[in-house]
Design a protein around this nucleic acid. Structure first.
Length: 954
RNA sequence: GCCCGGAUGGUGGAAUUGGUAGACACGCCGGACUUAAAAUCCUGUGGGCUGUAAUGCCCGUGCGGGUUCAAGUCCCGCUCCGGGUACCA
């Protein structure tokens, strides 16, 4: 009987679902193990073959762990809120909930097709009110807490009232955006509104004025990557930086912990490094420069306080409110026009245009506290308001940007570091001897930093300070399809959180999803929803995508709980994610926010672990191949003329136009010689009727006209296409749906082939060149169980030593390789074992049964089918993983390579238990080595037992 | 620019701590079956050199050096490719 994956897989898919095979319990005597895939956004395009790469790996690992006796939590759900559905709704009027449901249904059927072992009873969707009730609740918790820097923990905002009433805010060391100090008396004298405004500056979820990319013409706020050269990507309308009152999360409070705790994680170094660079800790000094003729001073942050004697001017961010105050009458026009220009600059431009410096002089002068010299104060876009204090002392001699700025505007440059002892050192390297720096002269840079910091603190003009690049996360979106904020505002504008019993706060029904006027969310149009009977109004912005995805892994532990985001019993049983598989694109977004939320919940005693994801594996991307045909620029007899890329190369016609071809029309897709045959040309013409009269030319002749009339064609006609590697996307006509591959070869082949492609973390273009090898393997496996008459037969005899050796060798290698996530080599080991079984004519029940269990995580369908035929009533996926017995692997003798001066010249079969001396003697006395020993002296013999023997001669 | 990866046959890749480079596949060559083809099966397959064609010799893991009895693996210097990131004071 033939191996028919289609029949087998359809049957078992049904049966597994009916028997709830993958449903698991929160109570078990078994040890727990939590394997998580990254939350997919269910896009309208469906899954392509790249998506399941990580899912297959994690599924194999989950199944393996189950067979090994673990209670494995392996869930799946959907990050269901998001912009694409909203955009689609604006274009088509289809409610985002409707299109999202449809997309999810498609995802689900594609996932089921691949045979994943998810416990679907635990599915979550972020857009489900039962889910976002708790997203909203966590937001309220963040709102009601502040962060104490001394204890490095979140504390209730409620206690601040007592603290402020007793001692003002001077002594409180908390993460805050409150700039001004106040006394207890001042606090008590404040109105409720004033007090609330101050408390807001301490909350972990707080409101402040932040800038958005506002596009007046589109009437919407744009993301950074939707803005190019100061205009919108869509339509090219002007975009300006518009200040708006928005919610933010104070992730910066947790910067130190987010950085330090990376140490305890089993993540790749590259990933940790990315996070730590993003957090961007730096040590430096914060100090004050007096302003000549003004009451105020300028606070700056520097990592190089040692260079202060070279500080010849200052630069402040153009956004600082006090810039107007210090600007002189003569400079007013210049400063204002510069500020106006900066407004039109996107954040991305301000950061990416490195070469061109710009700025304006305020007319004000600051006093260098060490030299006493007056130095000019400039504004420039290269100083960002949100980093440090938004002001710097510029040291043109020792900083690239300052140097360019000084050169452009003719400002003084005083050399202060002599780097002559360090050839090749750049300006930024902290090396060299101080010069022109009075008491620092002659010191090494690092010593000078220590010395000057001491002096700054002694003189009371500043302090040592740690600074972070990390910025607070803006948490408001002017969109419809997201979680509504559980916040109402009273008549004075004071924000009030909603109570748990009033949650979830659901979205109002709308039929128009366009933004409301004045940069407002579409929710603003739902006036009945916004305006409450008591005169309060609702927040109309919604939460961003990372809201729901920052805690979803906790919900899987107890997905239907209506009394808590998850029960404490469930949280204490599952604790944290043991293995998280996902792409590097989430390195600094999702993974950082999740860690932040988790740490907050940990501070509240709501989760038992400090970190959510113990081990992280990064999967590479499967790219697509974009196939193009070459079309000559000039028409032939008025018809478009396509030529084979071989001809293009031969005749050097590389300037020919490339016309993308749908990959379905191309043969040997992904290979270097992918080509299009006459059938493919017919499909192409159907798809692109404008080319129905075109000429198609290859080395063997040409075809032309709508009927594809052959001219001068001898031999097989085929146009080689030009292939390039790129993203798999709808717009490139190169999306490969896993359903197609599964339909042709079956899910087991698809799963194993994706693994066989190479190391999981490597990116590579999809091609099916090798898929037949994997498919043949499964057929050979199938054939082991059938005799020549097509009857299922296994022998019940005692297995031979050789059979046991093949089996246990496979067990050892596969298990080792699964543990180090080397799934591609696992597939090789399976192939090797089946080849060996076949060669030895093995159909021994004892051996093959264990082999089937070993293979079950990789090929769940075919193994289940054979398992049943072997007479088992219970699923192979509930079997026990085979146990390795090293005794079967022991060899009596080993084939030793004998090398002379490192070059292998002969082989000797020697006893496995021979000691070094015996091995050496045998190697020197063997017949096979004699010819290499003639006329030379043996200087040394290196013997590595079990490995090799190297004879050094000379 | 900086940081992190990577470069191995015609192709995907293997070699876990320095110890037989090329496992396992694809492709290709040759053969069997067939009227023929497809499918299947068997065999060979890094390159080169040959005289007795083998259990032979030489070369070979991006390039140039080095350490070592021994280097794909370690060190130094380059080239190319991929990813991340950026006026961050």
């Amino acid at each position: 009987m033939d191996y028919r994956p289609g029949e087998i897989e359809a049957r078992w898919k049904k049966q597994w679902e009916a028997s709830h095979l993958y449903k698991i319990d929160n109570q078990s005597d078994k040890p727990k193990f939590y394997v998580l895939d990254m939350f997919p956004y269910p896009s309208g395009a469906g899954l392509h073959v790249g998506h399941p790469l990580g899912y297959i790996a994690s599924d194999i690992y989950s199944r393996y762990k189950r067979l090994k006796g673990f209670n494995v939590l392996h869930p799946m759900g959907y990050d269901a809120f998001g912009l694409p559905a909203e955009q689609y709704a604006i274009e088509t009027g289809v409610h985002p909930a409707v299109s999202t449901d449809k997309n999810i249904a498609r995802y689900r059927s594609q996932l089921d097709n691949i045979g994943f072992s998810y416990d679907w009873s635990r599915e979550v969707r972020t857009s489900d009110p039962k889910y976002f009730k708790w997203t909203q609740w966590i937001f309220v918790q963040l709102f009601e807490h502040y962060f104490c820097n001394d204890t490095q923990k979140a504390r209730p905002v409620a206690e601040l009232n007592d603290i402020f009433a007793a001692e003002g805010n001077a002594k409180l060391n908390a993460a805050t955006s409150q700039e001004d100090a106040f006394t207890a008396e001042e606090w008590k004298a404040m109105s409720t509104k004033e007090q609330e405004e101050i408390l807001m500056n301490y909350r972990l979820a707080y409101r402040k004025v932040t800038y958005v990319n506002w596009c007046e013409a589109l009437g919407t706020v744009l993301a950074n990557d939707e803005v190019r050269d100061g205009v919108s990507e869509r339509g090219g309308y002007p975009v300006e930086r518009k200040p708006m009152l928005q919610w933010s999360l104070r992730i910066t409070a947790y910067a130190e912990r987010l950085l330090n705790d990376l140490d305890e994680l089993d993540w790749s170094d590259a990933m940790k490094k990315m996070q730590s660079n993003w957090i961007g800790r730096s040590e430096g000094a914060q100090l004050f420069f007096d302003l000549d003729g003004h009451d105020r001073n300028i606070e700056i942050y520097t990592t190089r306080p040692d260079t202060i004697f070279g500080a010849t001017f200052m630069v402040v961010a153009p956004e600082h409110s006090w810039v107007a105050e210090i600007t002189t009458a003569e400079q007013k026009a210049a400063v204002e026009s510069y500020q106006e220009w900066v407004k039109s600059r996107s954040e991305r431009e301000r950061m990416s245009e490195v070469k061109e410096v710009s700025g304006a002089f305020t007319g004000a002068y600051a006093v260098n506290p060490f030299t006493g010299k007056k130095i000019p104060v400039w504004i420039s876009e290269y100083v960002l308001k949100d980093y440090g204090t938004g002001a710097i002392m510029a040291v043109p001699a020792d900083d690239e940007r300052d140097h360019r700025f000084a050169e452009k505007f003719g400002l003084e440059i005083i050399p202060i570091v002599d780097k002559s002892d360090y050839p090749g050192a750049t300006m930024e390297d902290k090396v060299g001897k101080m010069i022109n720096s009075e008491f620092l002269d002659g010191m090494e840079v690092l010593d000078a930093i220590k010395e000057i910091t001491k002096r700054i603190e002694a003189q009371g003009i500043g302090t040592k300070k740690v600074n972070y690049k990390l910025r607070d996360a803006i948490y408001s979106r002017q969109r419809y399809w997201g979680e509504p904020f559980p916040i109402t505002y009273d008549k004075e504008g004071i924000a009030h959180p909603m109570k748990l019993e009033d949650l979830p706060l659901e979205l109002p029904e709308l039929d128009d999803f366009k933004p409301a006027s004045g940069a407002k969310s579409p929710l603003a149009r739902a006036t009945d929803w916004v305006n409450l009977p008591n005169g309060f109004t609702r927040e109309t912005d919604t939460m961003p995508g990372f809201a729901g995805s920052s805690w979803y892994f906790l919900r899987y532990m107890d997905p239907h709980n209506d009394n808590a985001f998850a029960s404490q019993e469930a949280l204490h049983y599952w604790k944290d994610v043991d293995l998280y598989v996902g792409g590097t694109e989430h390195a600094v977004g999702h993974l950082l926010y999740s860690r932040f939320w988790h740490k907050f919940l940990y501070d509240k005693g709501l989760v038992p672990t400090n970190e959510p994801f113990k081990k992280l594996i990064n999967q590479g991307m499967i790219q697509g191949v974009i196939e193009n045909m070459y079309m000559l620029k000039e028409k032939t007899d008025g018809a478009s003329h396509f030529v084979c890329s071989r001809i293009v190369k031969e005749k050097h016609m590389e300037d020919a136009v490339q016309i993308p071809v749908h990959v379905d029309f191309v043969r040997d897709y992904g290979s270097q010689n992918s080509w299009i045959d006459v059938k493919g040309l017919k499909k192409f013409i159907e798809w692109r009727p404008e080319y129905k009269n075109a000429i198609f030319e290859c080395g063997k002749g040409m075809y032309r006209g709508s009927e594809l009339i052959a001219e001068k064609v001898n031999g097989d006609f085929g146009l080689v296409t030009h292939s390039e590697v790129g993203k798999m996307s709808k717009s490139k006509y190169n999306v490969i749906n896993p359903d197609e591959v599964v339909a042709e070869y079956g899910a087991d082949t698809f799963r194993m082939y994706e693994m066989f492609l190479g190391p999981i973390e490597q990116s590579k273009p999809w091609d099916t060149q090798g898929i037949s090898g994997v498919h043949n393997f499964l057929r050979k496996l199938w054939a082991l169980f059938y005799d020549e008459n097509g009857n299922f037969t296994v022998s019940d005899e005692q297995p031979t030593k050789e059979e046991l050796k093949i089996l246990h060798n496979a067990i050892k290698r596969v298990e080792d390789d699964i543990e180090r996530f080397s799934f591609n080599t696992c597939v090789s080991h399976f192939m090797k074992a089946v080849n060996d079984f076949k060669a030895g004519g093995c159909n021994n029940r004892q051996v093959l049964e264990q082999f089937i269990v070993l293979l079950a995580p990789f090929a769940p369908f075919v193994t289940e089918e054979i398992w049943e035929k072997l007479g088992y009533k219970e699923s192979v996926h509930k079997a026990v993983y085979p146990v390795l017995n090293e005794d079967y692997l022991k060899e009596d003798s080993i084939k030793y390579p004998i090398a002379f001066n490192g070059k292998t010249r002969a082989f000797l079969q020697l006893p496995a238990d021979a000691d070094k001396a015996t091995l050496e003697k045998a190697a020197l006395e063997s017949e096979d080595t004699q010819k290499w020993l003639e006329g030379v002296t043996v200087r040394k013999v290196i013997v590595v037992p079990g490995r090799m023997i190297n004879i050094v001669v000379g």
